[in-house]
Structure formats: structure tokens, C-alpha cells
């Protein structure tokens, strides 16, 4: 028996872990470090041909960034998306999960598949459809709203409405994912809790407030965390729908980083943008965990 309890042979460890850790090391850890170093250089299109052209510039990229109104605009837009879109998508996911999980529901798995369909579909194709739904002249949304006497809106072309339009599309596309996690959480709540609450005459709202929400707290914390991290990386929707326009009103941090890096090849500057985003996500995550700890004590 004692022989088995001992450590595995190093050769096995190396063979089994080597490929994965090697790939993660080379294509994730190393690039993160490289990007960090790059953010202190003026790496640009000339340095692409010959790396020796890149020079260390200290914190110049970062100070340039903080002086740049476009960066602040992108930051504002990203927070707009996270703070409005995040809670909205979590609320929709929770409502859909509760509807599906209700004992009244027939054809549960069919509804589940349908609700999940937007999640699995290709964003570029979804963008083709939604650009048309939002079309100012022929779009379904304006047509639908015309029944309520709302005059046509140029959803993607209007600086005020472009961001809400992207949020709506993102919620539509993503809510099914968190919904599944919420369903798993709901199924872990013992049914008899609700039964005894009903005997004592608790209203549906009271049941939700005093049973569902507290029992679901660990799931909600997890989902909030993942949603915040994911939504800060807002990119694909504005990239395919608006390219950041109109008037930079949908330009997100990641889109800004992408444009600076891969369109203008200001790679040092772009890397600095990436690290500012990383810092923000890190702080937001830490803050959320802190709040969570305080509320449980």
C-alpha cells in the first residue's frame, strides 16, 4: 500500500502536464509579461520590421492615455455597458430561470432549448439579423413600436440609442447562459421550504425575497463575478454592429485597444490600454469579493 501513496513519477507528471502547461506558458503567461513590458515602450509599425526600433519610454504611454479624451469616452462606455447591461442580463436570466423552474411549466426542455439558442449562434450572423431589426426604415423594431405611436428611431446611428441597442442585443444573446446556472442553483433549494412558507401564508414575493434570494446567494455571487469580468471585455458586439460609432458612443476599452493595436499598430500604447483594463477588472473583482465577505459576516 505504501508504495501507492507515494508521489507519481516525475516523467508522468511532465508528460501529462507538459503539453498543456507549455502551451499556456508560451501562448498566455509569456504574452502577458511581454505585453506588460511592451506597454513601457513605443513599439509601433516600424518596430514590427525591426524590434530594435522600439525604445523604452517609461510611463509615457500611460500618461498619454490619461490625457486622451477618447480613452475616457471608451472607459465611460464600458462602465455604461457593465453597470446597465450586467444587472439587466442577470435579472433577465434569473426571471427566465424561475419561469422555467416553476412546477407549472410544461415542455420544460423545449423552452430551455429555445431560450438557449441565441447563446450558441455565431455572433456575426446574429449581427446581420440585428442590424436589420434595428434598420431605421424597414426594421422590425420600429415597425413593432409604430403600433404604439413611437416615431422611427435610427437605433444604431443615434448617439443616444446606439448603446441601449447594443445592450438589448447582448442581453438577448447571453441571458440563456446564466439562466442555466441559475436553474442549477434553484434546483438545489429544498421544495419543502416553499411548502412550509405557503402553509404560513407567505406571498410569492415574500417567498422570493426570503427563500429564493438568500438560498441562491452563492450562485448569484458567482454569476455576478463572471458577468462583470465578461462584460468589461465588451468587444464583439460593437465591433460587428457599430465599429464604436456613432461619435465613439459605443467604443469600448477592448475595441479601443484593438483599434490602436491592430489598425494603427501602436502596440506599446495598445498594451497600456490592455493593462489599465486588467487593473480595472482586478479592482472590480476584489471589490465584489470584499462586499460579499462583509455581507456574509
Amino acid at each position: 500500500m505504501s508504495r501507492i501513496r507515494t508521489r507519481s513519477r516525475w516523467s508522468s507528471v511532465v508528460i501529462f502536464l507538459g503539453p498543456a502547461l507549455g502551451a499556456i506558458g508560451i501562448f498566455f503567461v509569456l504574452p502577458v509579461l511581454a505585453a506588460f513590458i511592451m506597454s513601457f515602450t513605443d513599439f509601433d509599425i516600424y518596430s514590427l520590421g525591426n524590434w530594435e526600433y522600439a525604445r523604452f519610454v517609461g510611463l509615457a504611454n500611460y500618461s498619454k492615455l490619461l490625457d486622451n479624451p477618447v480613452f475616457w469616452q471608451a472607459l465611460k462606455n464600458t462602465f455604461y455597458f457593465v453597470l446597465i447591461g450586467g444587472p439587466l442580463s442577470i435579472a433577465v436570466s434569473l426571471m427566465a430561470a424561475m419561469m422555467l423552474n416553476s412546477p407549472l411549466t410544461r415542455l420544460r426542455s423545449t423552452f430551455r432549448v429555445v431560450y438557449f439558442l441565441p447563446v450558441v449562434t455565431t455572433l456575426v450572423a446574429v449581427a446581420v439579423i440585428w442590424r436589420y431589426i434595428y434598420h431605421p426604415k424597414f426594421g422590425l423594431l420600429n415597425y413593432f413600436l409604430s403600433f404604439f405611436d413611437v416615431s422611427p428611431v435610427d437605433w444604431l446611428g443615434d448617439p443616444v440609442w446606439a448603446m441601449p441597442a447594443l445592450i438589448l442585443m447582448a442581453v438577448w444573446k447571453n441571458f440563456g447562459y446564466n439562466m442555466i446556472i441559475f436553474i442549477a442553483g434553484l434546483q438545489n433549494i429544498p421544495r419543502d421550504l416553499y411548502e412550509s412558507a405557503m402553509i404560513e401564508g407567505a406571498s410569492p414575493w415574500q417567498q422570493f425575497r426570503y427563500i429564493t434570494l438568500p438560498m441562491l446567494a452563492p450562485t448569484t455571487v458567482f454569476i455576478t463575478l463572471m458577468t462583470i469580468i465578461g462584460y468589461f471585455q465588451f468587444f464583439a458586439e460593437p465591433y460587428v454592429m457599430t465599429q464604436g460609432g456613432p461619435l465613439n458612443q459605443t467604443l469600448s476599452i477592448v475595441l479601443y485597444m484593438y483599434q490602436e493595436g491592430f489598425r494603427w499598430w501602436n502596440m506599446g500604447f495598445s498594451a497600456a490600454v490592455a493593462f489599465v483594463l486588467f487593473l480595472i477588472i482586478f479592482l472590480a473583482t476584489a471589490l465584489q469579493m470584499r462586499l460579499q465577505k462583509e455581507s456574509t459576516h
Binding site: P31, M257, Y258, I281, F282
Partner: peptide, 15 residues
Amino acid sequence: LIIPGQVTMLPVFLM
């Protein structure tokens, strides 16, 4: 996992 993947895009591309 909390490091946004986009951070690595530029260096991976260069590599």
C-alpha cells in the same frame, strides 16, 4: 482566468 485574453493578442500575434 481573470486576465482578459485580449491582453495576449498582440504578443501572440508577433510571436
